[in-house]
Design a protein around this nucleic acid. Structure first.
Length: 801
RNA sequence: GCGGGUAUGGCGGAAUUGGCAGACGCGCCAGAUUUAGGUUCUGGUGUCCAACACGUGCAGGUUCAAGUCCUGUUACCCGCACCA
């Protein structure tokens, strides 16, 4: 009988759906397991093979965990708000609701054709009212706790998309979506005070099992640095100028100061500054530059000295000049630095250009050539002189500063507050009312969701306003506090909002009175394993770790961390080894693969194609190989014997394969798990037969990867019930060992012969047997045996001279 | 510049963590089946080969034994980046 994959696959997909096989509920009689994969944005393009690889990993784990007796929550949903649907609407006039629903239906259909064991009763859509009601609810909680606030800022503005973008969305000075150049625009915008959670986010990393590089990336993103704040008295003004430095030990080497062009101290002391016109010119020049130009295209240091204003170095009383330069940012530290040209390359370059003194305070370099940033003996440094260790000198200086009251220890973070709004239509409306009397007032909780109104024109306003601003019925409202006329906020939340908490909704997706019940939180949280793309380990994951930690702090969830374990998938590259992209024409459509080879082949291939966590090119031939493997699996039914036991010569092989597949699935080594099944099936064919017990257990091992074919064989051969209800196979460590093993025999570390011995044989016995081998005997005769080593079950090495 | 990572046949990749390098799959070669192509099956396949020998980016080192450990070095990939 031929392996008719398409009949088999549709049969079992229908069965699982009708039977609701994978729907789960709270069941205290079983241990829970929460496996989470990143949900997709339902684009018009449909599922990509990258999605397939991402989902199939934990899909295999979930199927296995169920057989192992776990109550497995493996949900799926759609991150449905976002720009593409809106841009599509602007182009075609089709409402994002309509195109999004269509895309969700298409994605769901495709996922079902792959045979995923998602709990389809829990599907969520972040753009549905039932969902975004709770996104707004969490936002309001943050607002109530002072974590959501408005501030005027220079924002990254994309003139083409007509939206304000966060720094994360405008990397490299280009818009993430349309790749136009970003310009700077002053605007009052919403922020979430994520910086308040820097320490908690860092500390949380100790509790979770993320790959080291993921932790490193998050730490890097948060960017903690420790140092000191130091106050410099201004000469010609009453003010003190506060700077931040990580090297307070170099204070004696300070020969000038630099402040950001936007620093407010300039305006406050405008009268004293003699060259204000030149200063204003420079500031205007800087304001024109985008963030990208200011930070990326650094060729030469520029700046202007503030004539008439200077500062006093607090440790030695020396008067030093102050410059403005765009190499100092207002957004980091205090917007002012003490410059130590001898030991900081940027300061060195600036000093060289402007002819400023360079004073060496750390011995060890040649400061006439470049700044010296290494360790060395402190010189010209008063109390620090003679110290040779950076840590000691920093400590001593901090002590000194605190004692004199001129400075203190300080900490800075690279991460900035999260610009939390878009002037766009297709997103969660921010549930805030602007009242002329009461200021910002939250929409009352019982009025949530604040519905996204229907509009005809999706085009954003040319001044960066949201399309919502044009809808008077939406904008005009009464203040919930004073009852007076007020206006609604018309901005919507950014793409990242809905995905920051979606894993919490899956545990109780239809709850109307809370985002999830206490019972569900207590049972399902936290997520045990979260798998997804590398590109999400900073933005998405940090954002959701922040939201979760906030909910924990206000008692809304019971675990400080959302995700206990994280893995990242390697990219699926095109057959040419390049990143898959429509423009290159190297995109593989998973549905095409399913039509020709079947879903089981597709699933097996994406896990077999290479190291799961590394990028690998798609290979049609590789797919064929997996199809051949499944053909051979099907063919095992033709060589089936009636025995309900393992054959003696297969006992050890079976147990070893069970052990390998079991541990490999748990440790993301799907490729070697599948390889070991291929080896086993090759052995079955070589022996010309397979017993019922062998085939049954083989099917269970293969089931996580290829569930349809194994369901079918299990039923056809009447192995008992359905394979999805079977118990995962167990192995006996003792039986994994072979009775006899072949060991290599080496002379001086080089292989000379092989020897078959009992696995339990002792060292002396094996060495004697090795020496007795004809070839070995010939080679060692007349030589002195210095040493002989036996590594049990592996090799013998005879060292001769 | 800082942080993280990778380097193994013609290709994707294995290697119980110091113990027979190249499992498994692809590709390729030969043979069988087939009217032919494809499919399927059998055998072979790191390099040089009769053998010795040589082989895990490169150069050293430790060890009876190194893809694995140590020192140095090169190339590539990813993240952050005038962060004071």
């Amino acid at each position: 009988m031929k392996y008719d994959f398409s009949a088999i696959e549709s049969k079992w997909q229908k069965f699982w759906e009708d039977d609701k096989t994978f729907e789960v509920g709270i069941d205290h009689s079983k241990p829970k397991y929460y496996a989470l994969v990143e949900f997709p944005y339902p684009s018009g393009a449909g599922l990509h093979v990258g999605h397939i690889k991402a989902y199939t990993g934990l899909e295999a784990l979930s199927r296995k965990k169920r057989l192992e007796g776990y109550n497995v929550l493996f949900p799926m949903g759609f991150d449905a708000f976002g720009l593409p649907a809106e841009n599509y609407a602007i182009k075609t006039g089709v409402h994002p609701r309509i195109s999004t629903d269509k895309n969700i239906a298409h994605f769901s259909d495709q996922m079902k054709k792959v045979g995923y064991s998602f709990d389809w009763s829990r599907v969520i859509d972040t753009s549905s009212e039932e969902y975004y009601k709770w996104t707004q609810w969490i936002f309001l909680k943050m607002f109530d706790h002072g974590l959501a606030f408005r501030d005027t800022a220079l924002v990254n503005y994309c003139p083409s998309c007509k939206v304000v973008l966060s720094n994360e969305d405008s990397q490299g000075g280009k818009c993430d979506v349309c790749h136009s150049d970003i310009v700077q625009m002053p605007k009052e915008v919403w922020y979430l005070r994520i910086t308040e959670y820097c320490e908690k986010l860092l500390e949380g990393l100790a509790r979770v099992d993320y790959p080291a590089y993921v932790k490193a990336q998050q730490e890097n993103w948060i960017g903690k640095s420790t140092g000191a704040f130091v106050d410099f008295q201004l000469k010609g003004s009453e003010e003190k100028l506060r700077i931040y430095t990580t090297r307070p030990d170099t204070l004696y080497g300070v020969t000038f100061m630099v402040i950001a062009p936007e620093h407010p101290v300039i305006d406050r002391n405008a009268k004293v500054i003699k060259n204000m016109p030149a200063v204003e010119d420079y500031r205007a020049e800087c304001a024109k530059k985008t963030e990208f130009e200011r930070t990326q295209l650094v060729k030469d240091k520029t700046g202007v000295r503030l004539e008439g204003l200077s500062a006093i170095n607090p440790v030695n009383g020396k008067e030093i000049p102050i410059y403005i330069s765009d190499y100092v940012m207002m957004g980091y530290g205090t917007g002012a630095i003490m410059a130590v040209p001898a030991h900081d390359q940027r300061d060195w370059e600036f000093a060289k250009k402007f002819g400023i003194d360079i004073i060496e305070v750390i011995k060890g370099g040649d400061i006439s050539k470049e700044a010296y940033t290494g360790d060395g003996e402190m010189i010209n440094s008063g109390v620090l002189n003679g110290l040779t260790n950076k840590k000691d000198s920093i400590e001593k200086m901090l002590e000194f500063l605190e004692q004199k009251g001129i400075g203190e220890k300080g900490v800075q973070y690279r991460m900035k507050d999260w610009a939390f709004n878009r002037q766009r239509y297709w997103g969660e409306p921010i549930p805030i009312i602007h009242c002329p009397h009461c200021g910002l007032v939250g929409v009352p909780y019982d009025e949530l969701p604040l519905r996204l109104p229907d509009v005809k024109n999706f085009e954003p306003g040319t001044d960066g306003e949201s399309p919502l601003a044009r809808i008077e019925e939406f904008v005009n409202c009464k203040c919930p506090k004073c009852g007076g006329d007020a206006k609604r906020e018309t901005d919507t939340m950014p793409q990242w909002a809905g995905s920051s908490w979606y894993y919490l909704r899956y545990i109780d997706p239809h709850n109307d009175s809370a985002f999830a019940s206490e019972e569900a939180k207590n049972y399902w949280l936290p997520v045990d394993w979260y798998n997804g793309g590398n590109e999400h380990v900073t933005r998405h994951m940090i954002y959701s770790q922040f939201w979760h930690r906030f909910l924990y702090d206000i008692g809304e969830v019971n675990t400080p961390e959302p995700y206990m374990k994280r893995t990242c998938i390697g990219l699926v590259l095109g057959p040419d080894g390049d990143k898959m992209s429509k423009s290159k024409g190297n995109v593989v459509d998973p549905l095409d693969v399913i039509k020709v080879y079947g879903a089981d082949t597709l699933r097996t291939y994406v896990l077999f194609m290479g190291d799961y966590e590394k990028a690998a090119p798609w290979s049609e031939n590789g797919v064929t190989g997996c199809k051949r493997f499944l053909d051979r699996v099907w063919g095992l039914q033709d060589i089936l014997t009636g025995s309900e036991e393992y054959r003696a010569e297969f006992t050890s092989k079976m147990h070893r394969t069970i052990k390998k597949v079991t541990s490999d699935i748990d440790s993301v080594k799907y490729n070697t798990a599948i390889a070991s099944l291929m080896t086993l099936i090759n052995d079955f064919y070589s022996s010309g037969a397979v017993t019922r017990a062998e085939l049954r257990d083989f099917c269970i091992l293969l089931y996580p990867f290829a569930p349809h074919i194994t369901e079918e064989i299990f039923e056809a051969q009447k192995f008992g019930g359905y394979i999805h209800n079977a118990k995962w196979v167990s192995y006996d460590e003792a039986l994994c060992k072979e009775d006899e093993v072949e060991v290599a025999v080496q002379i001086n570390g080089k292989i000379r012969d092989k020897l078959t011995v009992s696995a339990e044989a002792e060292q002396d016995e094996v060495i004697e047997a090795a020496k007795a081998l004809e070839r070995i005997a010939a080679e060692i005769s007349g030589k002195q045996i210095v040493k002989a080593i036996y590594v049990k079950g592996r090799l013998v090495n005879i060292v001769v001279r």
